[in-house]
Amino acid sequence: MTTHHNDPLADLSASGVSVWLDDLSRELLESGDLDALIADKHVVGITTNPTIFASALAHGDRYEAQLRKLAEAGSSVEDTVFVLTTDDVRSACQVLRPVYDRTDGVDGRVSLEVDPGLAHDAAATVDRARELWAAVDEPNLLVKIPATAEGLAAITAVIGDGISVNVTLVFSLDRYREVLDAYLTGLEKADLEGRDLTAIHSVASFFVSRVDTRVDALLDPIGTSRALAVKGKAALANARLAHRIHEEVAASARWDRLAGTGARLQRPLWASTGVKNPDYPDTVYVSELAIPGTVNTMPGSTLAAFADHGTVPATRVQDTYAAAADVFAELARLGIDYDDVVATLEREGVRKFTDSWDELGKTVGGRLRQLAAG
């Protein structure tokens, strides 16, 4: 690997990791900051979520003129949120279009979430995904669908329609296997319908730091030296074992047949990579998951930290699988129920996104009422 002096993000990119930003706002778009991140910080994609949009709308004045027009037209809160978010994502897609073209569609991607309140309604999720795809009308969009049990059927249906998907809120290894299966089933459906599989892309957003937050909170009360010795290890172990599943699918006969038709393998995307425990290195979920062929989407603070002092270890991920399995064996011996941990994280993840979506609606509704009142 070529070493780029004083440019850790260049090293990360050269290692085969796609650097994406977990942030989007009209300020970022209109100020030229996004262009600068692409040019100078090796950013080749963007993810969004309801929390990010809620913050952007609550704290940014660049939405004011459009909100005023929508208020005067009597636009509903739901329609206004739809217009504002799809407009921002469309603009970001256009900014990133040269990256998309240069990488043959692998990067240059922008994600937009289906209303998380629909996470347990497959049919409604499919309908909204189609609406978002049509409204943004850019080939480098990824529609985000939560990896709930109901979301799996929606993922298959949407991929079958030829819509590219970012599967979000993946915590469990078993669920990740189901996500990969849903993606392959969708590709097989699209193939039967004669669609161009080369145009369909997907990432699976495997959440990282929240696993440590949850597991560490269970280890602290145990308090033994054995318990404290595995603090901060569960998240990386979980992600590394997820990558092993990805490799198993990539080596399967089922995938081999689809690859022969030009299909693109779904890539693992490491999400929730900002460190929540200040005792841990602030770039640990980036440097320790610097795996070729993966995506790391970082909040701005983590991106800046890695740009300043990040490193790319020489260790191959395949050499970490045995130790990762040992972490979970030790957690089980300590009485930590993995299935309960990941089920809790999925429920909390959907709830947090739904709460943020509701907060976004309240913010927009308040502004519409103020502007309509003059």
Rank of each mutant, 00 (worst) to 15 (best):
E150S: 14
G151P: 12
L152M: 15
A153N: 11
A154T: 09
I155H: 07
T156K: 15
A157C: 05
I159S: 05
G160R: 06
G162N: 06
G162S: 07
I163V: 15
S164D: 01
S164Y: 03
L169W: 08
V170M: 14
V170S: 07
F171H: 04
S172M: 00
L173Q: 14
L173G: 04
D174L: 01
R175C: 00
R175W: 00
Y176L: 09
Y176T: 02
R177F: 01
R177V: 10
E178H: 11
D181V: 14
D181E: 15
D181K: 14
A182N: 10
A182L: 13
A182V: 13
A182I: 12
Y183K: 03
L184S: 00
L187C: 01
L187P: 00
E188P: 03
K189R: 15
A190W: 02
A190C: 09
E193Q: 14
G194C: 08
R195I: 02
D196L: 03
L197S: 03
L197C: 03
A199Y: 00
S202H: 04
A204I: 08
A204H: 05
F206S: 02
F207I: 08
V208S: 07
S209Q: 05
R210C: 03
R210F: 03
R210S: 13
V211L: 14
R214M: 13
R214S: 12
V215G: 12
V215S: 13
V215W: 05
D216F: 06
D216W: 04
A217D: 10
L218P: 01
L219W: 13
D220V: 14
P221N: 11
I222D: 09
G223D: 14
S225F: 06
S225A: 15
A227S: 15
K233L: 14
K233S: 13
A234R: 07
A235P: 10
L236H: 07
A237V: 12
N238F: 11
A239D: 09
R240V: 13
R240A: 02
L241A: 09
H243Q: 13
I245A: 08
I245C: 04
E248C: 00
E248P: 00
A250M: 07
A251G: 11
A251L: 07
S252Y: 07
S252H: 09
A253H: 10
W255A: 06
W255T: 05
D256K: 15
L258I: 03
L258C: 06
A259L: 02
T261W: 00
T261Y: 02
A263C: 02
Q266M: 04
Q266D: 00
P268V: 14
L269G: 05
L269H: 07
L269N: 07
W270T: 03
A271T: 09
S272N: 08
S272H: 08
G274M: 09
N277F: 12
P278H: 10
D279V: 10
D279L: 14
Y280A: 09
Y280F: 15
Y280E: 06
P281M: 04
P281W: 02
P281S: 05
D282I: 02
D282H: 05
V284P: 01
Y285R: 05
V286G: 04
L289I: 11
A290G: 03
P292C: 10
G293L: 10
G293T: 09
G293E: 08
T294I: 09
V295W: 05
N296W: 09
N296I: 14
T297S: 13
